[in-house]
Write a protein that binds this DNA or RNA. Structure first.
Length: 448
DNA sequence: AGCACA
């Protein structure tokens, strides 16, 4: 049968439009390149690139029709064709009058992230764990969580878009480190897009929303009880008065827990000011002092019930101490004041530059070598599993205990301690938080 | 080298 050519597949003369259709573009041509191309002829108000099955078509929308006409007529008579990256591109009026960008809020970069927590036990991820995870990238202003058809979701507000973007790029598709979750909780994967919001409204501090910029925001429900020494959580559990000093007792202490090990474990959450260790009831206890309550709360929530070493050894039980400022009389292997700068001990001589620095003479040999016995089936010293970051073996315990040596360790938040859990995927260097910004993270806690 | 939400 003879096909009636009522609708020719291509019309060779298009009615003018301020939208131009471009084809034969280099693969994955960028918006910037399109703007460059159209700029000489007028104001490019919108573009859409990577169109079509081959992603080699695009649209340019000018502010005015005559600008589009100018571009078409110029190249119609030009001996040089329009080019992008040396490749000839073909121009024509589009058969549409405007570009419709189906950009949703999820595509527009902003300072607030929409986080979907995937997994059977997603609901069991606490807001504190989310706070900890996202704080690795900068100061988290606010978090709200809610239940939607998409599942358990959270909005996480950063100061600015670049910070949010660095968090999104680093965390999207990743799973929350196991050690931050209760043992029975299955894997929880984060799916992250941008939110349309720029400032979340948080009325109360509660188990579902937090405003970290305003620690004095009222706590939701009848959280206060009596004199304020104790509070009742939303689940009805009695809460102790929070403190910047934590009391840690260590159960099932099969291995030596040294000052340095404690320092390493607890400094994942913020700078440590002081540690004092002592024996009580035949067990080891330690007081760990942070500069602020907020950091202590995060550390307590993350570490409570967890074991320093794999296999249920050296299980931590953490409560808030009534102390607010420890009095450290002397720096020794059981107590230390990290706020007092020590005389520099390590001075790398020019002749040994590039070699390992000399070990701090104050310190004995590394704790792992000091301690016996090791488990029968392990020739290695135990490795603190709480620091096992994002599924990767943790760094060895610190060999030096000087404050300046510890500085980087102290301020390095958990998310930066280890490579991501996806093997072989490099951690984007740009998303690695700078110590300064991280300091502000921890520094912005409530003062007491 | 030929028009975008499938």
């Amino acid at each position: 049968m003879a096909s009636v050519s009522t609708q020719p597949q291509f019309r060779y003369t298009q009615p003018p439009s301020k939208v131009l259709h471009l084809r034969n573009l280099p693969w994955e041509c960028t918006e910037e390149e399109l703007i460059e191309l159209g700029k000489p002829f007028g104001k490019v108000v919108n573009t859409k690139c990577n169109v079509g099955a081959n992603r080699n078509q695009a649209f340019i929308e000018f502010q005015d029709l005559n600008q589009a006409i100018a571009m078409i007529s110029y190249y119609a008579s030009s001996s040089e064709p329009a080019q992008v990256r040396g490749k000839t591109v073909y121009l024509q009026y589009s058969n549409r009058q405007e570009i419709v960008n189906n950009k949703t809020a999820a595509d527009v970069a902003g300072n607030v992230l929409l986080v979907t927590i995937e997994g059977e036990d997603a609901r069991l991820v606490s807001i504190d764990v989310l706070h900890l995870v996202f704080s690795a990238f900068g100061f988290v202003h606010k978090i709200t969580t809610f239940e939607k058809t998409a599942g358990f979701q959270a909005l996480v507000q950063f100061s600015d878009e670049p910070t949010a973007t660095s968090a999104k790029d680093a965390l999207d598709g990743r799973s929350i480190p196991r050690y931050l979750l209760p043992e029975h909780v299955g894997p929880c994967t984060l799916r992250i897009t941008y939110s349309g919001h720029s400032d979340l409204s948080v009325k109360f501090q509660s188990h579902r929303s937090r405003d970290y910029t305003n620690p004095y925001l009222p706590v939701a429900q009848s959280a206060m009880e009596g004199s304020g020494q104790a509070m009742v959580g939303l689940d009805g559990k009695r809460l102790e008065a929070e403190s910047n000093v934590l009391l840690a007792s260590i159960e099932n202490m099969q291995y030596a827990v040294t000052l340095d090990v404690l320092h390493m474990v607890f400094s994942a959450f913020g700078p440590i000011q002081k540690i004092a260790m002592f024996d009580k009831n035949g067990g080891l206890q330690a007081l760990i002092q942070y500069p602020d309550i907020q950091t202590a709360v995060v550390a307590k929530d993350a570490l409570e019930g967890h074991c320093i070493y794999d296999g249920g050894f050296c299980k931590l039980h953490i409560s808030y101490s009534r102390h607010t400022d420890l009095s450290i009389k002397v720096n020794n292997d059981r107590s230390r004041d990290y706020t007092i700068p020590l005389t520099p001990v390590i001075n790398v001589q020019p002749s040994v530059l590039g070699q390992q620095p000399v070990q701090n003479p104050m310190m004995g040999p590394p704790s792992q070598q000091q301690y016996n016995p090791y488990p029968p089936n392990s020739g290695q010293g135990p490795i603190p599993q709480s620091l096992a970051g994002w599924g990767t073996p943790p760094p060895p315990p610190p060999q030096h205990s000087m404050p300046m040596q510890m500085y980087n360790n102290v301020y390095m938040p958990p998310g930066t301690m280890a490579p991501p859990m996806a093997p072989g995927m490099p951690y984007p260097s740009q998303s690695t938080p700078q110590p300064a910004s991280t300091m502000s993270t921890y520094g912005a806690g409530r003062s007491q």
